[in-house]
Amino acid sequence: MSEAAVADVESQRQGGLDFERLYRASRDDVYAYAAGLLRDRTAAEEVTAMAFERAYRKRSRFNPERGSARAWLFGVARNAALDELRRRSRQVELSADPVDVASVPDGADQRSELRLLLDAALAQLEARERELIALKFFAGLSNGEIAGVIGVSSSNVGTRLNRTMDKLREACDGAL
């Protein structure tokens, strides 16, 4: 059982929120989600700090009957990330330079090459799609947890993920 799952079980058992344990179990995941969505490390750090601070201040409002502590935390983190996204959309258009495949070092293996292509493909995705990828592969949430965080059904999450993965794969294959 993962540390995050243990934190969740412990929270459920105690009927409250063990914030310290939840923080230790989820801080890297929250950061990874924020960085994956925002594609900006500085902003991701701000969002991560903001998310944990908000969660800390609202910890008494966590209700175990409405979902896991981890899903609740990612709900808070998502709000913080969307606030940041909203703020930034007013200032500067998010963009990422396309990766020039030719710039990939000759010695790089196929996996490294794929990572570079993937990075470029992620930048081309819509924010909503990138969020799904960040929640699933960076934060490690299950489809059910993602469904709780973004407010759709679990099957809908699966469908959207498949579609986004296809899009990523096509982008990578197209660049080769």
């Binding site: 990874a32 960085a35 490390r41 750090e45 991560t48 996996r111 990572r115 960076f138 993965m165 990578c172």
Partner: peptide, 14 residues
């Protein structure tokens, strides 16, 4: 493979 690459590309905090 893409899923594996994504997992490897997971951003890590400073």
């Amino acid at each position: 493979e893409i899923a594996a690459a994504l997992a490897e590309a997971r951003p890590a905090p400073r």
